[in-house]
């Protein structure tokens, strides 16, 4: 049984003029626990919609999406929210850090929606997680005082704080320079491997995509395998010294 299974999934929206727009068509693929999968596509190809569906932020209009073998179609909004919070971590291109909150408060924010001890220990857990991404000394810094790479590290720490089974990254290096982007991907690979989380990366950068175990191409809403020959060799840089493997 696969962790994520998309079977003939489609997504169609109704435009304001009443016309139908088919964003995704007959998407079928599976992702196993602990895998790193990349999906390459140009802008407007439906990448983000696919990520939204996988992250339970959206629902397919055709086909079936199964999580741990169980169909997600009949889940209530509340149940979907609970599953999303507990099982998925999101990393956005524009970081989407909460304004006015320190790095630590940003990382702790998802724990406001978890229960029990995690909520009460959220500050401590956030500090630990910031240490893991090499920002232990920037816990009290506001996002606007952090560089782009540091902000994305905070976002990664935040996506990991609830120990999700799946990390969904949308253009995680899109707003970063090449060097910083490579460092961020190294970090993602490392922390995902350490926690055993599945990593799904959506990107238009073939060098970022090349780091995955399996690669897909999304073109005009249709998902297909990506020829490894199309991928640029993945850049590797030494992991930053402050990143602590645990």
């Amino acid at each position: 049984m696969s962790l994520l299974e998309l079977d003939g999934v489609g997504r169609t929206v109704v435009l304001p003029d009443g016309d139908l727009l088919e964003i995704l068509r007959d998407v079928t693929f599976t992702i196993e626990e602990g895998e790193h999968v990349s999906i390459v596509g140009r802008s407007g190809s439906g990448k983000s919609t696919l990520l939204n569906l996988m992250g339970l932020l959206d629902t397919p209009t055709e086909g079936e999406y199964r999580l741990d073998g169980r169909p997600t179609a009949g889940l209530s909004q509340r149940h979907r929210a609970k599953l999303r919070g507990a099982g998925f971590g999101f990393v956005f291109q524009q970081f989407n850090l909460l304004p006015g909150r320190t790095a630590q408060e940003n990382v702790a924010a998802p724990l406001l929606y978890s229960g029990g001890r995690e909520f009460w220990r959220r500050r401590r857990l956030a500090e630990d997680m910031l240490g893991r991404v090499g920002l232990g000394d920037r816990a009290d810094t506001m996002p606007e005082k952090l560089s782009g790479g540091e902000q994305q590290r905070v976002a990664i720490a935040r996506s990991l704080i609830r120990r999700p089974r799946v990390i969904l990254c949308d253009e995680p290096t899109g707003a970063l320079d090449v060097q910083t982007g490579t460092e961020i991907m190294d970090l993602l690979d490392t922390v995902a491997a350490e926690s055993g989380a599945t990593l799904v990366t959506i990107t238009h950068d073939t060098m970022v995509a090349a780091r995955a175990h399996r690669h897909y191409r999304l073109d005009a809403g249709v998902l297909g395998p990506l020829d490894p020959a199309e991928l640029a060799p993945a850049r590797q840089v030494a992991a930053p010294r402050q990143v602590v493997a645990s």
Partner: peptide
């Protein structure tokens, strides 16, 4: 963003 953290309506 909060909804992505699992915040219900």
């Amino acid at each position: 963003v909060r909804r992505s953290f699992g915040a219900t309506s």
